[in-house]
Every structure is written in structure tokens, then in C-alpha cells.
């Protein structure tokens, strides 16, 4: 059984947010929702200022607070390390969200048929529907309509249910096809890596061994599967600049 981990190389990250966008398109997340989020920080005062970037996918913790608090087992951890949400079981209590110290959970505040309203694109335009068949969004990924893993649960994609919790899935639908997550796939500067950490000779295992690394909020004991290399953890001095439009 594989044990998937992601490595974020902060010495290479340019903060371009291509990963956020690839995630959005791959997973069809609604407006304002970024399962992968990239912080852009500024520290210090002029002229002794510094800039840093920090991509933040779901940490897929090995000791995941969200899994513990879920009252129905909709949030669960798989043997391969992925922390997933069963969209057909989630009752929308949002307990996982308050329990997660990383802020990676996104609730379906809007109903699916209005999830893309903020984009001001009328996908039901008759001229368009003649071509798209009325699928919303028109770039909708059909991988999300099928169940994943031996457990056979509906766990990938976004925005197809009302009132349930969603978050980064490490692109379970791609991983199960042998592909890397969409964010890793698109990263233009090779700052994201993904692989099986159980295999000691896999590129990711070798890379982790050869580099100094840290995990986000290590002190909480959540033991994330996302490993950061280079750079430094954000400090209380880090001020976020250049936020996307994330409020729905």
C-alpha cells in the first residue's frame, strides 16, 4: 500500500498560484473556493523587507483533527494517506472545519446551481447550451461522478452537492489513475512534488531525506503529509498581501 506525501519546495515557489487555478479547473470548485491556497507574505519594515510564499493544500494529517471530530465518519483517512470526505454521508455540521487548524475546509454555502454565479457567466445561455449540453460548469470533469477507491465512496470534485463539506482530495481521482495531483502537474517551477513515501527509493523519499524540512504547525501533533522544504514556517510577523477574492 502506498503512502502519499506532497513536498512543497519553498526555495522554488514563485507564488504564482497556478496550482490554485489548476485545482479550481480540475475539481470544478465554485467561486471563492480554493482547495489549494497560496499565501503571499511580507515581513519586516522598509527597507528591510522580505517576501515569502506558502502553498497550502489540505495537509492530509496522519493524526487528523477533522477525522476525529466528524460525527458520522464522512471525513475519513485512507490507508494510502489521503484524507477524504464522503459527500453522500456528510451532514454539513462543519465540525471538521472548526477543528482544522489549517483552514483548508470549504463548505457548499451556495447551492450547486448558483455556485458559479459570481463569475457572471450565464452558462444556461441557449446559444451556449446548444454546444455544452447545459453542463455546469461547461468544463465539468466527469471523473467526479464516479466513486473512488476500494471503499467506493463519492469523494472527488466540488460543488455537486448542497450543504456538504469539501476540501483538497490530493486529486484522488487522478492519483487512482496513476497521475499526480493537478497542482503538482501544473507547477511551472517544480516547487511541488508528490509521490509514495513508503517506498524508500521513490524520488520523493529520496528528496525528503536529502533536504531539511518542516511541517506546518508541527507543534500541534497533527503530523501532516505535506512536507515543506526550504524557506521557513510563517511567523506571527508574516502579513498576507495580495489576497484573491475568496469571500462568497
Amino acid at each position: 500500500m502506498a503512502r502519499y506525501k506532497m513536498v512543497v519546495d519553498l526555495d522554488r515557489c514563485q507564488g504564482c498560484r497556478a496550482c490554485m487555478e489548476a485545482c479550481k479547473v480540475e475539481n470544478n470548485t465554485p467561486a471563492g473556493v480554493f482547495w489549494m491556497y497560496v499565501f503571499r507574505f511580507e515581513q519586516g519594515e522598509f527597507p528591510d523587507t522580505s517576501i515569502s510564499f506558502l502553498p497550502r493544500p489540505c495537509q492530509h494529517c496522519n493524526n487528523a483533527p477533522c477525522v476525529k471530530v466528524c460525527p458520522t465518519g464522512a471525513r475519513y483517512k485512507r490507508e494510502d494517506g489521503l484524507v477524504l470526505t464522503d459527500f453522500e454521508r456528510c451532514i454539513g455540521c462543519r465540525y471538521c472545519e472548526v477543528a482544522c487548524p489549517y483552514g483548508v475546509n470549504y463548505f457548499n454555502w451556495r447551492k450547486p446551481d448558483h455556485a458559479f454565479d459570481d463569475y457572471k457567466m450565464d452558462f444556461s445561455d441557449p446559444d451556449l447550451v446548444a454546444f455544452t449540453g447545459g453542463v455546469v460548469p461547461p468544463y465539468r470533469n466527469p471523473d467526479h461522478d464516479v466513486k473512488h477507491g476500494p471503499e467506493g465512496r463519492l469523494t472527488s470534485g466540488s460543488g455537486h452537492f448542497k450543504g456538504v463539506m469539501e476540501k483538497c482530495t490530493f486529486c484522488v481521482h487522478r492519483v487512482e489513475k496513476g497521475l499526480v495531483p493537478a497542482c503538482v502537474d501544473t507547477c511551472p517551477v517544480g516547487a511541488l512534488r508528490f509521490g509514495d513515501a513508503e517506498d524508500e527509493n521513490s524520488p520523493i523519499s529520496v528528496f525528503i531525506r536529502e533536504h531539511e524540512s518542516f511541517q506546518l504547525l508541527e507543534e500541534l501533533g497533527t503530523d501532516p503529509s505535506v512536507i515543506y522544504v526550504g524557506g521557513a514556517p510563517p511567523s506571527t510577523e508574516s502579513r498576507e498581501i495580495e489576497r484573491p477574492m475568496t469571500r462568497v
Binding site: 471563492g32 480554493f34 491556497y37 472545519e97 483552514g103 483548508v104 463548505f107 454555502w109 462568497v248
Partner: peptide, 16 residues
């Protein structure tokens, strides 16, 4: 409307 009708929003990047 969905729960968007409430004032609640996501923690984290959505800052709610």
C-alpha cells in the same frame, strides 16, 4: 438560497 443566506462563511482564506 443555501446557507449562503446566513452570515456564516468558511474559516481560513474566506475569513469568516
Amino acid at each position: 438560497q443555501g446557507m449562503v443566506a446566513t452570515g456564516m462563511r468558511d474559516l481560513g482564506a474566506m475569513q469568516g
